[in-house]
Amino acid sequence: MSKKMHIQINVNGKDQEFLAEPRELLIYTLRERLNITGPHIGCETSHCGACTVTIDGKSVKACTMFVAQASGKSITTIEGLGDPDNLHPLQSAFKEHHGLQCGYCTPGMITRASKLLEENPNPTEEEIRFGMAGNICRCTGYQNIVKSIQAAAAEMNAAQEAAE
C-alpha cells in the first residue's frame, strides 16, 4: 500500500473529493467508490472499450488511467448522457435499432459514439466503423450499432436544424 492522495474529480457534473491510493484505477473509482456502474470492465488492457468515459472532451478507457492522473478533470459516463425522462438520442436509437444484446458493451459504446458524433455529426458508415473500432461488442456483429449511430446522427442533425 502506498500513501493515499487527495483526489478531486467532477463526475457527471458533480464534484467528488476523497483520499485514494494513486494506483486505484479510474474504472474502480467510478464503479466501486462512486457506485457509477455503467462503465464496465472487459479486457483490462485497453482493447475492448467497455470502460469508455469522456474525460475533458476525450474518449478514454478508464481501465488504463490511474485515478491520480484523473485528478482535476471532468468525467462524463453513460449516466451523465441522459436520464429516463430525457434520453440521449443515441440511447433511444440503440433500442430502436436493436444495437445491443447483452448490454455489457453498451454504456462504453454509446459514450464513445456521443463523442464521435460531436466531432463528426455526419459520419459515413466507414467513419463510424473506424471511429468505433476501440469498442468491442461480442453480440451484435456491429451492423445494428452502425445503424443506431446513423439514426441518432440523423435525429440530432434534424433537431439542430429545427433549432436554427
Binding site: 485497453s46 472499450g49 464513445r112
Partner: peptide, 8 residues
C-alpha cells in the same frame, strides 16, 4: 491503436 488510445 484505436480512437480512445489515440486520445491518450
Amino acid at each position: 491503436a484505436d480512437p480512445q488510445v489515440r486520445y491518450m
